[in-house]
Design a protein around this nucleic acid. Structure first.
Lengths: 353, 353
DNA sequence: AGCAAAATTTGAATCGATCCAAGCACTATG
DNA sequence: CATAGTGCTTGGATCGATTCAAATTTTGCT
């Protein structure tokens, strides 16, 4: 555990200047063969690990890595189906340019702020699922290029990539309404900082997360347009995980007026709902229809396969990387097309309903 | 797009030394209130983004990030179920200590070497699935703490965390043999650099990947012990992806002697096999039994749920991080216990078989 | 006011490399 | 033999911060 060998040590050992020693490693072709050998031999002898990237970095300026930040725990990137799929796209784009990926997150707020401040990256891709705006502020302070995902706050100074949530939610609601459904229930993404439980339309419309707000708006405008009594539609706000979604299903199916159609704001919730219904022997789509949102790969594999509002998730990831790498000083806002994918989880309501 | 503001600029603007300016940001409590305010004001005025981590890094020495390396494309971390689960464990341990995660990989060999050399990390966790030993050599050159996963080469100078592959594979084979199976087939992990197709026992026993070698050994020692004609057991080597596994199933089920038991060296292959069998209406476990290896979360969710040799995958990830963070100069080799999980994909062979 | 102790501030040194203008050695040319 | 040209090497400057011993200012006390 001795002091590590520096380039200067190697240079001294080889009897050359540090400039030449540096050249041996970074542009070997410009130094004389004999000298190069001598330096390599010295490096070998001293056990030199090669130019330390920490030193190089300061001079070079570029880290060659993209930071991906979220306010969730780090495992979010590997556990959440949507995040995972975006990361796939990010990976593809990074592989294509040889860039690395730095995952930045933390268990608590203070640590998160520090991690964002000290992350060695060339730019950030920010997942705005929770604690979005605070995270964005933290990131903005770094004065590096960054792009937000799912951050629909209309701020022209912030680059973002997303889809038209209002339109997407609208299509989902219209699909079910046209099939003849009249009794709806909504599984909503978080509207406030933390916690889950039944909520009201008014509260949902004032959600601090714009994605939640927009999807709510899309659902309800369309339902209203089809003459549904919007005030009677129960909304259950989850934390987009299994436990709170199951609690939501319990709640929605404990009422006297059972819903025949469920609008889930994420595939993750929709898939959990499907599972919950199957466990109780409630037939999907015979008795209840379910529509998801996102279009994660898993949605095609469930039984029955999920009807959902598919975002071009991988493409979102790819573009996010391009957006950082090609940043020209002016933040871009990209709205990508959604595709409504009708699969096996939706059908007309049971006869008589 | 002007030259970024440095701490020295702020110091000059505020009329203090750069030493004091530095203290304002890193130990604000030791500078006089009035001065602190003055420096903050100067920073504000100049649009200073805060101390640049690139500069700090050189002095501090520690990056506070763990590198995770593989020779696969970056998306491997998000697409492969085993990798994903290990990453979950790594995430947990990193969150617990506030460390970040740097994903290091590359599409081609040259780029990979460069990325390993220049990764800004405090240590490496190396996934040795493919190109293991080359990757290990590259990593070793950095002279940073590192730990390999799934690298059973018996080299005392290399830290590793894994399971007893021979024993695990043995249990799987014994389970099937005891159920009465006599006609086996093996879906093997890669034995050589690239490519897939039918292979021989001899070639598999000389696989360049020790994990493959050990599992083969475990399977065949146990089968031989149960009086099975080991030379008649077909082995198909895949690339552990869907396409090559499907090709393997086609091959194995094109023969005249249909197998009643499939030993898959990974859950990923086993799950694909299950799917392939279902598509063809071949009943599992009625007509064919399948045993996987790994114990990824998905294995519990398939229909039927998969009988498999479960590694403590998340724990492997957690320990890998601890192994880097607590590195004391001597590489540790940890062998964790496996657990054989019997689920619904195995049963006695059809009567008369 | 005078002096010691405590609290701040200073500025040079350091972290580990890369870059580049200038210098040197050697060869080719008139 | 002087001159220009080519090819390699040198060493100082720089990247952006932190650190720490020494200098300075402030505070506390008589």
């Amino acid at each position: 555990m001795t002091r590590p060998v520096r380039l200067a040590d190697v240079a001294r050992e080889a009897g050359v200047s540090h400039g030449t020693a540096s050249n041996v490693f970074s542009r070997p072709e410009i130094v004389r063969d004999e000298v190069r050998e001598r330096v390599f031999a010295a490096a070998q002898k001293l056990g030199y690990a090669g130019p330390d990237p920490k030193g190089r970095l300061l001079r070079a300026g570029k880290v060659n890595a993209i930071g991906v930040a979220t306010a969730e725990p780090l495992s979010y990137f590997f556990d959440d189906p949507f995040a995972r799929t975006v990361m796939s796209g990010i990976s593809q784009a990074c592989d294509a340019t040889g860039a690395g990926i730095s995952l930045v997150s933390a268990a608590n707020q203070e640590q998160l702020a520090w991690n964002i401040q000290s992350a060695l990256v060339d730019g950030f891709i920010v997942f705005c699922v929770e604690g979005g705006s605070r995270l964005v502020e933290l990131t903005r302070k770094r004065k590096l290029p960054f792009v937000t995902l799912d951050f629909a706050e209309h701020d022209e100074t912030i680059a973002t990539i997303g889809v038209d949530d209002v339109a997407g939610a609208g299509i989902a609601a219209r699909h079910l309404a046209k099939l003849g459904h009249r009794r709806f229930a909504v599984l909503a993404l978080p509207t406030i900082e933390a916690g889950y439980g039944p909520t009201t339309l008014e509260r949902a419309q004032n959600a601090i997360y714009s994605g939640t707000r927009d999807r709510i708006r899309g659902y309800f405008e369309e339902l209203a347009a089809h003459g549904i009594d919007v005030t009677a539609v129960p909304i259950y706000e989850t934390e987009n995980d299994e436990a709170s979604t199951r609690a939501g299903m319990e709640h929605l199916f404990a009422s006297t007026e059972l819903p025949t159609a469920i609008l889930a704001m994420s595939d993750r919730m929709a898939l959990t709902a499907l599972e919950w219904l199957r466990e109780r022997g409630i037939d999907v789509p015979g008795e209840v229809s379910v529509v998801g949102f996102d279009g994660v790969p898993e949605s095609a594999l469930s039984v029955p396969p999920l009807t959902t509002v598919a975002q071009p998730i991988v493409e979102i990831g790819r573009r996010a990387v391009r957006s950082i790498l090609d940043f020209d000083g002016t933040p871009r806002r990209e709205i990508l097309d959604i595709e409504f994918v009708v699969r096996g989880s939706t059908a007309p309501p049971p006869a008589g309903d």
